[in-house]
């Protein structure tokens, strides 16, 4: 029952966030200076040509109507047509999504795979050599910019060892090749994230070490390691889940620089190009999609909280 109430409340808040976000995005893009039609046609365009294009793009309709047609369009999968490319936005996004989503998931998985063992090790060997070296490594991971690290990876694995190509995307027709071309970017994205996650997990675990229930567990006969693993980890998960959720949202669109380094046609590059070309319908749609992704990820994070901590289920 508690879980059901919790879920309903989260769903309502998810829906409201989406509505508010769509309005804000629409308004911001609308009030941005510059008319897409005149921008597309260049400085020398005739006023009547511009007017004709405005009609064609639907820019002459009332704002409210345009908002509703934009929103209802998105719900049916019709994201409109790109001003510059004259191609359906949905198709453009879908193409990019097939690169950005797997890349984000790979990076996130990698980051978690590194962070969990490293964080547990550091917390259990607190103050000893293992902890100190893990902390030093994460310090480096946080400090080194990922594009520079990406270039080092390219130098070593692509140019020196020739294991993978230096950039570009092989396409999903050959899944092995596709994964191969995403591997270096995923590593470059994952390492700084793993460093942050390790530090968060370590400090959350160390916080649980001083809890009374950890002492109770030791009194039952659990070793230090068992106590940390069975009782500490789950109690330390809430801050870790928060960071994981934030990282996923960032990885989905925040990979612009890495996409640039590896010549990957991902969402980050799409949004960058559409902004410079004043392709408003693409900007609106991609931003809305990202907001949607962030809100859904937040919703999933909230669900994960409730699964981890029973107190959240009853405190509806």
């Amino acid at each position: 029952m508690g879980m059901l109430v919790y879920l309903t409340r989260r769903l309502i808040s998810l829906f409201l966030s989406l509505v508010v976000a769509s309005m804000v995005i629409f308004l911001v893009v609308e009030v941005a200076p510059g008319d897409p039609a005149s921008y597309m046609l260049g400085i020398n365009a005739q006023p009547d040509t511009i007017a004709a294009l405005r009609t064609e793009l639907g820019l002459d309709q009332p704002k409210l109507q345009r908002y509703f047609s934009w929103v209802t369009g998105m719900m049916t999968g019709d994201f409109g047509t790109s001003y510059t490319y004259r191609a359906p936005v949905a198709q453009m996004i879908a193409d990019r999504m097939w690169i950005s989503l797997p890349l984000a998931l790979m990076a996130l998985t990698l980051s978690a795979l590194i962070a969990f063992p490293a964080g547990l090790l550091a917390a259990s060997k607190r103050g000893k050599a293992g902890d100190v070296s893990v902390m030093a490594a994460t310090q480096l991971g946080v400090a080194i910019p990922n594009f520079w690290f990406a270039m080092l990876l390219v130098l070593l694995f692509a140019i020196k060892l020739r294991w993978v190509s230096a950039g570009g995307f092989a396409g999903w027709d050959n899944p092995m090749a596709a994964i191969k071309s995403l591997t270096l970017p995923a590593i470059a994205l994952a390492l700084p994230q793993a460093a942050i996650l390790t530090r968060v997990l370590r400090s959350a675990l160390i916080d649980t070490l001083s809890e009374d229930f950890m002492r109770t567990a030791r009194a039952k006969g659990l070793t230090r390691g068992q106590t940390l693993w069975r009782h500490g980890l789950r109690n330390a998960l809430i801050p870790v889940l928060t960071i994981l959720g934030l990282q996923f949202s960032f990885l989905l669109a925040g990979a612009i620089i890495i996409e640039q380094v590896f010549y990957l046609p991902g969402l980050g590059r799409l949004i960058f190009q559409s902004i410079t070309q004043r392709d408003l319908i693409v900007v609106e749609s991609v931003v809305m999609l990202l907001v949607f992704a962030v809100i859904v990820v937040n919703f999933l994070t909230d669900l994960a909280y409730a699964l981890v901590d029973p107190r959240l289920r009853s405190r509806a």
Binding site: D212, T216, A219, G221, P310
Partner: peptide, 28 residues
């Protein structure tokens, strides 16, 4: 330490002062 782990909980049990925090809040 390993031998003490076998004794704790089996030969010696312990009850603590603060029942509100002595139990793991996320385990039934």
């Amino acid at each position: 330490e390993g031998q003490m782990c076998e004794i704790r909980g089996r030969d010696i049990g312990m009850v603590f002062q603060e029942p509100m925090t002595a139990l793991n809040p996320v385990q039934c």
